[in-house]
Amino acid sequence: MRRRAGLGAIQKQKLEQEKYREKGSEIQENQFQQMSKQLEVFRENLEEFATKHKNEIKKNAQFRRQFQEMCAAIGVDPLASGKGFWSVLGIGDFYYELGVQIVEVCLATNYKNGGLITLEELRTRLIAARGKAKKHQEITNEDLLAAVKKLRIFGNGFSVVPIGKGKWLVQSVPGELNLDHTLVLQKVSSLGTAWVSSSILTDDLGWTQTRANNALNYMIKEGLAWVDTQDSKEKLLWFPSMFSDCVSA
């Protein structure tokens, strides 16, 4: 390159640098789009293979591992069996697969819902994560209930609660591991009031009404909270264990 001097040269150089930068980001953007496309192709192919060649993949140990790695990288679910003949009798991998996927959805969302999810939401999420193929769309609520039934053997840690009108709630966190009560207590102590209401929980913690009621009812049942119906708007719950804090404050 020839050497240039003067103000014009500097400006030109600046302009050039600007252009290079633009070009650079343009190239990156392009590359990213290409990658996204490849990701899609990969996803479609993996989904298709998982459905069609399950048994062959299962047989070859080394390939099975590799297939799993690919699925993990791209985010494809290798478990994609159709209902098949045997599932009529409740036998076969189909319901186990669903079971795994159900637990997975519950685990992935329980930071948001505290381990309570409606069957409808569960189904929507499960199908979305399973893939786009048509047969996944045909999974019914009955299939899900049948799959959850298989988990009963683990005690009541994973249970379906009917809430009427053909609707269900799936509870995935057993009482012993449910930290919601602790969160309620933390909330109460931070408020410094020794009482709380379900609207405070839904507003401040972003909980659903069901989640809040579930936690509070449990605490009433366990004798941790006392009910106060004197407030005109809603039921208040007092926590005797917090009284001492009130007095000292």
Partner: peptide
């Protein structure tokens, strides 16, 4: 999707 991310994480612990 939370679920897809979680799935991918679980599967990577093969």
């Amino acid at each position: 999707d939370d679920t897809v991310r979680f799935k991918s994480y679980l599967m990577s612990l093969g």
